[in-house]
Simulated scan of single mutants.
Amino acid sequence: MPEDLGDKILKTSGNLTLVIDNLEKRGFVRREKDFTDRRRMVFNLTAFGNKLIKDIFPKHSKIAQNVFSVLDPKEQESLGRLLKKLGLKKQMMNKQFREENYVRCKKN
């Protein structure tokens, strides 16, 4: 579901749906039904999307390495730990929000 990926990248499901729609329109991803769970959709890179990732990722990785090089290894480790902590808290809040709204919807 979009919220699974959305939790990981800290985006809402509505925002993520729009992002995926745009990626699909541009030919980067293909939307398919999840055969194990009819409520879910699976998104796969197309050959075009895969090529784009292979072309762009090495450049992106070099830029990220350059940006983070200002931090020493201990600072990078601390930053990683802090970002993970924030991400996990956000995931927990998203899950709690969905559960509260599900209960609220069932009562109405």
Rank of each mutant, 00 (worst) to 15 (best):
M1G: 05
D4P: 01
L5G: 00
I9E: 05
I9F: 07
I9T: 08
I9N: 06
L10V: 06
T12A: 06
S13T: 01
G14R: 02
N15L: 13
L16P: 04
L16G: 06
L16H: 07
T17Y: 03
V19Y: 00
V19D: 01
D21G: 10
D21P: 04
E24V: 02
K25G: 05
R26V: 07
R26H: 09
E32S: 08
K33S: 08
K33D: 08
K33R: 14
F35S: 05
F35I: 02
T36V: 07
T36M: 08
D37H: 00
D37C: 00
R38S: 03
R38L: 02
R40S: 01
M41I: 01
M41S: 03
V42A: 10
L45S: 09
L45E: 04
A47R: 05
A47C: 05
A47I: 08
F48I: 13
G49Y: 00
G49P: 00
N50T: 11
N50A: 12
K51T: 11
L52W: 00
I53D: 06
I53Y: 09
K54T: 12
D55N: 10
F57A: 14
P58I: 00
P58D: 04
K59Y: 04
H60Y: 15
H60M: 15
S61M: 08
K62T: 09
K62E: 12
I63Q: 11
Q65H: 10
N66R: 09
N66S: 10
F68T: 12
S69W: 06
S69M: 03
S69L: 04
S69R: 07
V70A: 10
D72R: 07
K74H: 13
K74A: 11
K74P: 06
Q76P: 02
Q76I: 12
E77V: 06
E77T: 05
E77M: 08
L79D: 10
R81A: 09
R81D: 09
L82V: 13
K84D: 14
K84E: 15
L86V: 12
L86S: 15
G87Y: 01
G87E: 03
L88S: 07
K89T: 13
K90I: 09
Q91Y: 07
M93K: 13
N94F: 13
N94E: 12
K95Q: 13
K95W: 14
Q96D: 15
Q96I: 15
F97T: 13
F97K: 13
E100V: 06
N101Y: 10
N101V: 03
N101D: 06
N101P: 03
V103D: 14
R104W: 05
R104E: 06
C105Q: 14
C105K: 15
K106S: 11
K106H: 07
K107W: 05
N108M: 13
N108S: 11
